[in-house]
Nucleic acid binder design. Structure first.
Length: 967
RNA sequence: GGGCGUUUGGCGCAGCGGGAGCGCGCUUCCUUCACACGGAAGAGGUCACUGGUUCGAACCCAGUAACGCCCACCA
């Protein structure tokens, strides 16, 4: 028996250990996977070794675990590959901080010792985030943890680099790159974050060497005046008359604060309408100026060292930090009377995505990958649908970036990372890339020198899907042959370019033109409750571990999944988890109720079904459902197919073979048939391929079924049925069956609470743990759809609700039982017939009457009535309050209590409402356009609704007439 | 400058062509033997705005506004 209180923290650790030690996280799921079934693989976006679990991880890994657990339960050989990223800059920063605490820099240690220190740091702190994933319940393959600096991974990097180098895809060049003066390294374009900042546009007079006519100077406008120290020209627009005289005279400028004379020239780049129409040109510190410099043969004068401190080229400003120099230069210009004016100017300023320092464009020798040829097949792979983004709109973002892709700067001036495998001979000038370390020059025998730089961390991350599958192994055991491509990649939108696109490009290039994954899930970004991005500096982050300890891992997972919709953001507030925590508690208590009523439980054993569940053919069916042609099959199940089976069900009342439960529950009452039918509908809904990544919709479906249908109604019905000796046994079986299947469907979302309960219930399944129990299959539930029972129970529910409502209205104590009369009436025009009987109307009512009569004991129990008298068109007692619903007049006898006035008012109001609705429908049905153009089923539905409304209106009117007589 | 997202009851959101719904909050009642992290009954919205398409629009199209995100070398 389960304890009264559900205590997540106590159970989570215990259950996780059970799963882990049973080996369920490995590909064969501890022997429970079907080797014949199609494999299912997800690679985790490797968190940085420096990482600590944040809400983004919590969300992303919840989604991946849901998919992984579902696939595992479907019997597929499933593996969620886990590991960490060495995170060059981030880790180096951490270790440098650690050294700084003891007053040291990395240069004090030297490269080798520093790298050793990084490895040390990794072994000490690198598994923090992995442990945190376990707290979430993530079922990753922890026994095969990967790291982007593993030896095998390094081999993959080498192979990639050398291949591209030989193919001419990787080249070295002097370019303007984004330089972070704090990290002292180059960054790729997409590692720079642009922020709009309010700056100034300074107008500076550049005196001419010799006046031209009256012109003694020209004015340039700049946002970065300090770079003037590196100016080697002034550019004007091609057709700017203001400067044609200067150009004709071949005038030159004396660059202030220096002794340099620089040319004036015209260039297509310059926009004569901006600023003064004259641009100072600094080829070493601006990408556009760099290009202009190339076009006009200007020298490049680098004025900064790697910390953005002015170097010797800056003359008297040498040694100043860049902003210090800016102030000093402006002051000096002011003193010289050369600062004409200062405008405010908003512009985008680049910042380092790692440390937020303002980026300095800087000319330097770097390694680049030429991207355009790689992008082409990657664009095609998405265009032709081999890879799909979810939501689909992200494909557009992908295309836009890929189609205007620029070359990728891959060299970083760091020590922690994969060192660029290029070797140089200083003696003879030999140079080559090599997969192995080279010592001596093959040409002259001199000692070789390896490139000092390391590769961009994303260069290694891009290989993650195949490098973790042992690429470039080429033996028969090659996991790539069996398990590639992977199925799903789930990540945040901010690394679509940095990572996702590059994985696609490199996989297509290196792995036999194979895609790395079929589906890309771009999940929403978790914002705080006010809609702000969560960040350390804002201090508005929420710690997932705190949520787990306060609400339980299940509640956190479910609460997050619940909020995943197509939107790009999700506002998150910890209070939102309360309802998910309550849901976990609800599941727990519902299970307790079931268990409390099983003392004399006997399973309806059926060995044949037991084998069907775990046998291979069930897995095959599963696969079919998950594949593309499943849509058709699914539809078939929902439509004609099921109608036929339905008849069979009503006759035999037993569940078809192949159910996922080990016994076939025998439904005896409409309530039984109803809940089984609802369960079948749920399974069908969850199996909808088009919604397979719509986690919010699936979670809502599970929630609504379990709480609003199973708990609110079926369990309440069951209380009545359990008290009836003839129904007790079957009711127990249905309760266990539905609970069992609901737990299986819920398990991927809420693994802990479902596992704990499942182990306590007599599910009869041979699987030792829910995590490897078969996932319910839609096809096996098809025979459970039962529209008769759904209609019958809908009547019961409507009656109970009407009675409760009246009771509340008259403030009648729940303890006082009611005397109830129900009069059924068939609409003459309605064709709506939820019953199978071929004949309509009166007969319809008879079926209905019988059904209500059969459920009478449930109504008595749920609404506390003495007896429910049902008639077809029978007279209702006068001293009663009547509710009209679904063609039923439900009368509660209220001798002496009835307030005729209030009843009249209430019914008048209700009448008005119904008459309005009726009028609306009448107008619709008399609209020829509607009758001519609307779909026939829509027209039919409108006619049915009209007939029913008409009946309702009549019933209310007659009731009102009766009241008038009485009052 | 270009692209994208959001705008629905007090708050957070779902629905995305034919009945405005969920969770939280709110009101009233109920500690009855699964659950007060609960049960029952209620109140509360002209679905941002303006046009258009349609027999019919919260839903499709165009435009507007507000908020947010991304991309882009305007010095």
């Amino acid at each position: 028996m389960l304890p009264k209180q559900y205590d997540p923290s106590e159970l989570e650790t215990k259950l996780f250990k059970q799963w882990e030690s049973a080996g369920y996280f490995s590909r064969n799921a501890g022997g429970h996977a079907n080797p014949e079934a199609p494999p299912y693989t997800i690679v985790i976006p490797p968190p940085n070794v420096t990482g600590v679990l944040h809400m983004g991880h919590a969300l992303n890994n919840t989604l991946q675990d849901i998919l992984t657990r579902r696939a595992r339960m479907q019997g597929r050989p499933t593996r969620w590959i886990v590991g960490t990223d060495h995170a060059g800059i981030a880790t180096q920063n951490k270790v440098e901080q650690k050294l700084a605490a003891s007053g040291k820099t990395r240069f004090d240690l030297g490269r080798e010792a520093f790298v050793e220190e990084c490895w040390q740091w990794r072994s000490e702190y690198g598994s923090t985030i992995i442990e945190q994933l376990k707290a979430m319940g993530c079922s990753c393959d922890y026994n095969n943890e990967k790291f982007t600096m593993d030896a095998s991974y390094a081999a993959a990097i080498r192979k990639v680099f050398v291949s591209w180098y030989r193919a001419g895809r990787i080249y070295r060049g002097n370019r303007i790159i984004n330089w972070c003066p704090r990290c002292t390294t180059a960054l790729a374009d997409d590692e720079v974050e642009h922020k709009d900042e309010q700056g100034s546009l300074w107008h500076i007079r550049y005196p001419l060497l010799e006046p031209v006519g009256d012109i003694k100077y020209l004015v340039v406008a700049t946002t970065r005046p300090e770079t003037m120290l590196g100016d080697t020209g002034v550019a004007v627009a091609l057709d700017d008359e203001r400067y044609s005289e200067l150009l004709n005279a071949n005038a030159k400028v004396c660059l202030p604060l220096t002794d340099r004379v620089i040319p004036i020239f015209a260039d297509e780049y310059v926009d004569k309408n901006f600023g003064t129409g004259a641009v100072k040109v600094t080829p070493a510190h601006d990408p556009n100026d760099f290009e202009m410099g190339k076009r006009h043969n200007l020298p490049e004068i680098n004025i900064f060292n790697e910390h953005a401190i002015i170097n010797a080229n800056g003359g008297i400003f040498a040694g100043m930090e860049r902003y210090e120099a800016r102030a000093a230069i402006l002051q000096a210009l002011e003193d010289l009377g050369l600062l004409e004016k200062t405008d405010t100017h908003d512009h985008a300023v680049g910042h380092c995505y790692r440390c937020d320092t303002t980026i300095e464009p800087w000319a330097s020798e770097q390694w680049f990958v030429s991207m355009a040829p790689l992008a082409k097949p990657a664009i095609k792979a998405v265009r032709d649908g081999r890879i799909s983004f979810n939501p689909k709109r992200w494909e557009k973002v992908y295309f836009q970036w890929m189609e205007s892709i620029r070359d990728w700067c891959i060299s970083r001036q760091l020590w922690w990372g994969h060192r660029i495998p290029v070797f140089y001979c200083d003696a003879c000038g030999w140079q080559d890339a090599s997969e192995t370390d080279l010592q001596k020059c093959p040409s002259c025998g001199s000692a070789l020198r390896q490139d000092e730089d390391v590769l961009d961390t994303w260069f290694s991350s891009q290989l993650w899907p195949f490098a973790t599958a042992s690429w470039p192994a080429d033996d028969a055991q090659d996991p790539l042959k069996t398990y590639y491509p992977t199925q799903v990649l789930s990540t945040a939108r901010d690394i679509i370019f940095l990572w996702v696109a590059r994985m696609i490009m490199s996989s297509l290039y290196f792995v036999d033109e194979q895609i790395p994954f079929r589906d890309v899930i771009i999940h929403p970004t978790v914002l705080d409750k006010h809609g702000n991005i969560m960040s350390k500096s804002r201090g508005n982050g929420i710690d997932p571990l705190e949520l787990i300890s306060d609400f339980g891992a299940d509640a956190m997972r479910f609460g997050l999944a619940l909020q995943v919709t197509g939107a790009q953001d999700m506002k998150f507030d910890r209070d939102k988890l309360a309802s998910s925590r309550n849901f976990a508690t609800k599941i727990w208590n519902a299970a307790r109720f079931v268990l409390m009523n099983l003392e004399d439980f006997q399973p309806a054993t059926n060995d044949a079904q037991n084998t069907a569940v775990t046998s291979s053919d069930s897995v095959e069916k599963n696969t079919a459902v998950a594949s593309s042609d499943s849509v058709e099959k699914n539809t078939a199940v929902a439509s004609s197919d099921s109608v036929e089976k339905n008849t069979a069900v009503t006759s035999s009342d037993s569940v078809e073979k192949n159910t996922t439960a080990v016994f076939a529950p025998v439904a005896q009452t409409d309530a039984d048939r109803w809940i089984l039918s609802r369960l079948a509908a749920l399974a069908l809904e969850l199996d909808d391929e088009s919604k397979s990544f719509d986690f919010g919709a699936i979670a809502r479906g599970l929630y609504a079924f379990f709480w609003n249908e199973f708990c609110d109604w079926y369990i309440e019905f069951a209380k009545g049925q359990l008290a009836d000796a003839s129904l007790r046994r079957s009711t127990q079986q249905i309760l266990v069956f539905v609970l069992d299947n609901a737990l299986r469907l819920l398990h991927p979302f809420m693994p802990f609470v479902t596992e704990e309960i499942w182990q306590s219930i007599p599910h009869g399944c041979t699987s030792p743990h829910l995590i490897v129990a078969p996932y319910p299959q839609t096809c096996t539930f098809a025979g459970l759809h039962n529209f008769n029972a759904e209609s019958g129970i809908n009547d019961v529910i409507a009656i109970v609700q009407a009675l409760r409502s009246t009771r509340a209205r008259y403030a009648i104590s729940p303890k006082q039982s009611l005397d109830v009369y129900i009069s059924l009436q068939a609409s003459e025009h309605a064709s709506k017939n939820t019953y199978d009987d071929a004949s309509k109307n009166l007969c319809d009512c008879e079926v209905r009457l019988r059904s209500i009569h059969e459920q009478g004991f449930l109504i008595n129990k749920l609404a506390n009535c003495d007896n429910v008298n049902v008639t077809i068109g029978g007279e209702l007692p006068g001293a009663s309050s009547v509710t009209v619903v679904n063609g039923m007049q439900i009368a509660i006898v209220l001798d002496g209590l009835i307030d005729f006035n209030a009843e009249q008012q209430r019914l008048q109001k209700e009448l008005q409402k119904q008459v309005d609705a009726l009028d609306k429908l009448r107008r619709k049905l008399s609209n020829e356009g509607f009758l001519a153009k609307a779909a026939s089923d829509v027209i039919q539905k409108s006619k049915d609704d009209f007939a029913e409304l008409e009946l309702t209106v009549e019933q209310i009117k007659s009731q009102l007439a009766g009241l008038k007589v009485l009052s």
